[in-house]
């Protein structure tokens, strides 16, 4: 299955992936309207320490502990992608308690959000990858 992979040495820490993610999942047509002057809730996050940067999003684990732990039955695996039914999610954050990579977060309206590879929005392929200026994240089969 295709996943988002990180090339740590190419990441310059520009955070564009975070903006592209937040925009792709905003449901809006205009990036300025969607993001300007607002707190953004991206599902990918640039980690920084010393001179290393890299973007972390859901690894779509083959045996995801978040899905096994969810107390709402809201997380499931669909064709290999780990998806969350935000309608079922009650925001208890048990998935945040168990994800070893810190890849899930509380969204704007209480329910948890996570990378769904832009398969659930109109983008159709990961917006973070499409907008990365440096191929520091790629979407491919490995």
């Amino acid at each position: 299955m295709k996943r988002v992979y990180v090339n740590e040495k190419w990441c310059i820490g520009c955070h564009l992936c975070e903006y592209n993610c937040a925009f792709a999942n905003s449901g809006q047509a205009d990036m300025v309207k969607a993001l300007k002057g607002r707190d953004i809730f991206p599902r990918i996050r640039v980690e920084e320490s010393g001179n290393i940067n890299f973007a972390v999003s859901c690894r779509h684990c083959t045996d995801p502990i978040c899905a096994k732990s969810c107390i709402s039955g809201a997380i499931s695996v669909k064709d290999g992608a780990v998806c969350i039914d935000r309608d079922k999610c009650v925001g208890c954050l048990t998935c945040v308690l168990v994800c070893p990579y810190g890849a899930l977060s509380q969204g704007e309206h209480g329910a948890v959000q996570k990378c769904e590879l832009c398969l659930q929005n109109t983008c159709g392929e990961p917006a973070c990858v499409k907008g990365c200026p440096n191929r520091a994240i790629v979407y491919e089969e490995r």
Binding site: I52, R59, G102
Partner: peptide
């Protein structure tokens, strides 16, 4: 709590491969 604290080898495994 950040994956930046993991070893480079672990980071390569986690963010560069199927887990």
């Amino acid at each position: 709590p950040t994956p930046a604290a993991f070893t480079p080898a672990d980071r390569r495994k986690i963010f560069g491969g199927e887990i």
